[in-house]
């Protein structure tokens, strides 16, 4: 345990690492379990390299499907990366991974629940030294905005995927299955998560000092600021819809579910 912190010379001599009496460990434990479960699930799916397309639905882990090995119907823009020999998801999945890893909410989540730095407020952390985000690799969290920009491009594609989910197998419009609703809901949640991002808030107007000279950007900043207060909620909701949407496509593509309602 830390010996230079609450035990430092001059401070009140109290042996306990924390005197909190509430169940402070519940939240970091829940966060740890939930994020671990997501990492395990997404890793399983990304490396599976099958059951990611069931007309008209495509899994978001594999969209846009750019590799030459993508199954017919799932290919995006002619699947130009013909030399790629691994799962097509590996070409894409690093973008949402980077976006969420550098996200200001998830930073709080994993610093508390995985790195215990700190596990909870006023609970001593178990590390002897701490440099925060001043050195590699964590200093790279400062480029969160680039992950946001790439994430927004993916959101456009996933929204297009949701629109295509309204097509019937013959290509005509009007299909509405449970998958259509799930993909649409997922796209909506991903937009809400992305737009409520702190970097987005800075980009639309936060960096301005004179709001009065930029009334349109001020209105945008005000709107994003309202969304931003719910960023944690959208982080969790969108993470859940990602899993639900992908698992639904997995069930449909693997034949576990079938019928006109799908």
């Amino acid at each position: 345990m830390a010996t230079t912190g609450i035990d430092a010379p001059g401070r009140a001599k109290i042996a306990a690492k924390t005197l909190r009496t509430d169940r402070w460990w519940v939240q970091p434990l829940f966060t740890f379990l939930a994020l671990t479960a997501f990492v395990v699930y997404s890793t399983w799916r990304v490396f599976m390299n099958k059951y990611y397309y069931s007309d008209p639905y495509i899994s978001l882990f594999y969209s846009p499907c750019l590799a030459g090995s993508c199954v017919p119907g799932a290919q995006f823009a002619g699947a130009p990366i013909t030399w790629w020999a691994f799962s097509p998801a590996l070409l894409i999945a690093w973008i949402p991974l980077a976006f969420r890893f550098t996200c200001y909410y998830y930073r709080k989540a994993y610093f508390r629940s995985f790195w215990l730095s700190p596990p909870a407020c006023a609970v001593a952390e178990p590390h002897g030294s701490y440099s925060g985000e001043t050195k590699l690799p964590l200093i790279l969290n400062n480029v969160h905005r680039y992950a946001l920009y790439l994430g927004l491009v993916l959101n456009v594609i996933l929204t297009w995927d949701a629109i295509l989910a309204f097509r019937n197998p013959d290509g005509s419009w009007g299909h509405v299955g449970l998958g259509t609703l799930i993909l649409t809901l997922n796209a909506f949640c991903l937009w809400m998560y992305s737009l409520s991002c702190h970097s987005c808030r800075n980009a639309v107007g936060g960096r301005i000092t004179h709001f009065s000279k930029h009334p349109v950007r001020y209105q945008m900043w005000t709107f994003i600021s309202k969304l931003n207060t719910h960023h944690m909620r959208w982080a969790w909701v969108s993470l859940s819809t990602v899993v639900i949407a992908d698992f639904y496509v997995y069930l449909a593509a693997s034949g576990a579910i079938s019928g006109s309602w799908v």
Partner: peptide
């Protein structure tokens, strides 16, 4: 002032008696 040391764990916001949204 060491801004890079801050890792956004929001404890400052949690304890602020004036409810200032210090982190956000």
């Amino acid at each position: 002032h060491g801004l890079g040391y801050c890792n956004i764990t929001k404890c400052c916001t949690e304890v602020c008696p004036e409810h200032i949204h210090i982190t956000d």
